[in-house]
Amino acid sequence: MIELEGLTKHYPNSKKPAVDDFSLKMAEGETCVFVGPSGCGKTTILRMINRLVEPTSGSIRIDGKDVLSADQDQLRRNMGYVIQQIGLLPHRTVRDNVALVPRLLGWAEERTLKRVQELLGLVGLDPEETGGKYPHQLSGGQMQRVGVARAMAADPPIMLMDEPFGAVDPIVRSRLQDEFLQIQHSFNKTICFVTHDIDEAMKMGDKVAIINEGKLVQHGTPMEVLSQPAGPFVRNLLGEDRGVKLLDLTKCQDLMRRDEGLLQKLQGNPCTIGALQPVKAALEVMLRKDCDTVTVLRGDRAVGALTWQEIKGHIHGLSGEDHEL
C-alpha cells in the first residue's frame, strides 16, 4: 500500500506550490491514475514517490515504511519506472536494456537472460528477433514495449508510469493499453499511472485521482467519478459525453435483462452483442442496424436482452441529476 500524506512541493522560484497538501492512499494491486491538465502537479507527485523530486513537506509510506528515509537507489530498483520519452539506452541492445535493473541488483546472468526472454515475449516482442537490436532500429510502439518490459524486469511490486503510451499514434496506443491491462490482470502490481487523457484514465484506472493546481479534486472509481463528478472542474474535464463514457465502462451483462419471455420473442434477432462488451458497443449495434433491442450472447447462447429504454434509464439514473453546470 502506498500512502501519501500532506505531500507538498514548493519550487524556489514560484509563488504557488506545485503540489499542495496532497494526501492519497493506493491499495495493493490497484491501478491509480493521476489525471489533470498539464502543470497540475501530477508528474511531480509521481516523481516524489521514487524521489526523483524531494518533497518540501509531507510523508510517503510504502507498506508502512517511510520512503523518504530509505536509500534512494535501492528504492528505485524496486519500482518500475516508465516515462513517455522512454529513455532507452541507445548504445545498448534491447536485451541489455531490459537486463539493466536485474544486473544492478546483481542477479546471476543466466537468471537475468531467462527473465529478459520471458519479458520480451510478455510484451509481444520476439526475443530472438528483437533482443539483439538497438533502440534506433525499433518503431515507436516497439520502444514503448521495451520500456514497459524494462520497468518490469526485476518484478517490482510497484510501477510508476508517466504518460507511458503518450508518444505513439492512437491505434498503437489503444493496442498497448489493452495489452497492458491484460498483463496487469495477471500480475496485479500496484501502479501509479499519470496521464492528461481522461479517456485513458477511465480505461486504465481502478481508481482515478483528479488533480488541479497541485490539489486532489476527486478520488474514486471511474464509475464514481463519472456518475458523481465533484464540481465543475471535474465535469469540465470529463467532457460533454459523460453519459457515453459511462456506457463504455458498463458491460452488457451488467445491464441486460434476463427475461426468458423476451428472449423467446427475440429468436433470430440480427442485433447481437457479446456479454463482456461495453454497452457502448451495443448502442453502436442499435444505431447501425436500426433496432431497439439487442440480444446479449455468451458464446452462442442468448443470455439476456438490452433495450434502448434500459440504456437511457441507466445514463439518466447515474448522471441525469445534475443538469446545472
Binding site: D73, Q74, L75, R76, N78, I83, I86, G87, L89, L104
Partner: peptide, 21 residues
C-alpha cells in the same frame, strides 16, 4: 539526452554508474 539520464536515475543507477555506463 536528458530522458536517458532520467530513466537511468529512475531505475536506480548511482551517479557513478550513470557516468560510466
Amino acid at each position: 539526452d536528458r530522458y536517458v539520464l532520467e530513466s537511468g536515475r529512475g531505475m536506480g543507477m548511482s551517479a557513478a554508474q550513470i557516468l560510466f555506463h
